[in-house]
């Protein structure tokens, strides 16, 4: 419920959208699934981004580029999804919500909260985000983990997300009260195979910090190693040792640290279990 909203704008080019967003109290509107319901006494104007032509997806030589206004439902329908990390992205999107939500929620909106499984998977897959800013500041390409730094900046918009497409092995593990609940902890492990070794290991987790993080200590244990039991165990221990998880109704800090260990181990085992002979 917007109490003080006076204006609803639907610009048709990005520069105009950014100029509108520079006005006090103006906010961008993607699908609106999170923004529209709750009582809001601050917003003076909404800038609907649906006229900017950002609903696209395109395959480039090394990555899948998704426009910020592409809905998660349309994303699920992309055949290219299966090329990425053994379909892990699709599974993470399905966990994000029921069809009614996926049909409205956008890629861009999902990056700024409300879609922890998806954000974790994107982080593990090494997705990059392209941000559009007002003329002087210009366009920026950043890692998922740097997104937070730009969120506070006025007149900044997520324009697109690029997901690398390369042969990557993944594992995705989560614990929740019910299958569709937000997870207490979710871990996505992604790695490339080099003979009997793995490299470019990226392990991302939700529920261990305020936002999804990389478990770099665990990644280091695995990088250029053969993922045998002892190594995986060390990586899992490293993951648990490096985090100080927050506590909420889905889990205490202690329990989440325990899950960091168990789920890192399981996610890496699942990824390593997909290694083929080379």
């Amino acid at each position: 419920m917007f109490l003080r909203m006076q204006a609803f704008e639907r610009p048709t080019d990005l520069a105009e959208a950014l100029r509108l967003l520079a006005r006090p109290g103006y906010r961008p509107l993607g699908g609106g699934t999170a923004a529209v319901g709750p009582v809001d006494a601050e917003t003076a104007g909404l800038v609907d981004l649906s006229g900017l032509g950002l609903q696209y997806s395109r395959m480039e030589h090394d990555g899948l580029v998704l426009g910020a206004m592409m809905t998660l439902g349309d994303l699920l329908g992309l055949p290219e999804l299966l090329l990425i990390g053994g379909g892990v992205l699709g599974k993470a999107v399905e966990r994000t919500g029921p069809p009614t939500l996926l049909n409205r929620a956008t890629m861009g909106g999902s990056l700024v909260g409300g879609a922890p499984d998806l954000a974790t998977a994107l982080l593990a897959l090494g997705a990059q985000v392209t941000l559009a800013r007002l003329d002087a500041a210009g366009q920026v390409v950043c890692e998922m983990s740097d997104l937070e730094r730009y969120e506070a900046e006025p007149a900044t918009l997520i324009e697109s997300v690029r997901i690398p497409v390369k042969p990557v092995l993944t594992g995705y593990e989560r614990v929740a009260r019910t299958p569709r609940d937000l997870p207490a902890v979710a871990v996505v492990a992604a790695m490339e195979q080099d003979g009997q070794f793995v490299q470019n290991v990226r392990i991302a987790a939700y529920g261990l910090a305020p936002a999804p993080i990389r478990l770099k200590a665990a990644e280091e244990e695995l990088e250029d190693a053969a993922p045998i039991e002892a190594v995986i165990q060390r990586a899992a221990e490293a993951a648990a040792a490096m985090v100080t998880p927050p506590a909420d109704l889905r889990g205490s800090s202690e329990y989440r640290r325990h899950l960091a260990r168990v789920l890192t181990r399981r996610a890496v085992e699942a990824a390593a279990g997909r290694m083929g002979r080379m």
Binding site: L29, A34, N103, R104
Partner: peptide, 28 residues
């Protein structure tokens, strides 16, 4: 039923796709 799209009681089809309407502006 809820204002957040979570209960789904306000679902209609928009251009053929099921969508909640309590968290959707008519202008959109």
């Amino acid at each position: 039923g809820c204002d957040t799209g979570e209960c789904g009681a306000c679902t209609v089809l928009i251009n053929g796709k099921p969508t909640t309407t309590c968290n959707l502006l008519a202008m959109q």
